[in-house]
């Protein structure tokens, strides 16, 4: 089990951590989710068949685990009006955590984009993080999200438009 953990950690931990962090934007939550991902991976690694790449499989598990996190959080916050609507408002929980030091050290434009991520739906944020932070291809992103490639392209287009509109409007939706 330790060998499996070491192997996965050495190859993917940094990417996995980045992916989850930029979805939840909270280090404690990120650590909890990443831990949960490793538990799921270690428990089910024997079932992994290799049809998808190991990274796709890992990120797919991370995606599901993060959705669960938002779902639990949403339940606690009991935001009735936007609970699971079709636009996937699930991930739109406004970030109130302080900026991480890595972001503080960046210029204003990057800090601004980081904060604008809050205004994307979870689906949009997933695509943006996978495509531009993780630098994954449309194909890989589609595999992880279990979508068609055209849905990835459409969601990406809408996400960028939204970020652009928010940037022009000074962050007001």
């Amino acid at each position: 089990m330790e060998t499996t953990f070491n192997d996965i950690y050495d190859r993917y931990h940094n990417d996995l951590y980045q992916y989850v962090f930029y979805l939840v934007k909270n280090k404690q939550a990120c650590e909890d989710i990443v831990q949960e991902v490793y538990i799921k991976v270690l428990k089910s690694h024997q079932h992994f068949r290799g049809e998808s790449s190991e990274k796709t499989w890992l990120f797919s598990i991370a995606k599901h685990t993060t959705i669960d996190y938002f779902r639990k959080q949403q339940r606690q916050h009991n935001k009735l009006a936007h609970f699971f609507n079709k636009d996937q408002e699930l991930g739109k929980i406004i970030d109130k955590d302080p900026l991480p030091e890595e972001i503080v050290m960046k210029n204003e434009a990057i800090q601004s984009v980081y904060q604008l991520l809050d205004h994307l739906t979870l689906d949009q944020r997933n695509v943006v993080v996978l495509r531009f932070v993780q630098m994954m291809s449309i194909h890989e992103t589609a595999k992880i999200l279990e979508w068609s490639e055209s849905k990835v392209k459409t969601t990406q287009h809408r996400a960028i438009k939204r970020l652009q509109a928010m940037a022009e409007g000074g962050g007001k939706s």
Partner: peptide, 26 residues
């Protein structure tokens, strides 16, 4: 510009050691 800024988002580090993460998982 937006996509450039997204690509420039920094690498946020996990400050825990591998051993710590492993122990927590175990």
């Amino acid at each position: 510009e937006i996509t450039k800024h997204l690509k420039d988002l920094p690498n946020v580090k996990d400050h825990r050691s591998k051993e710590t993460v492993y122990n927590q998982v175990m």
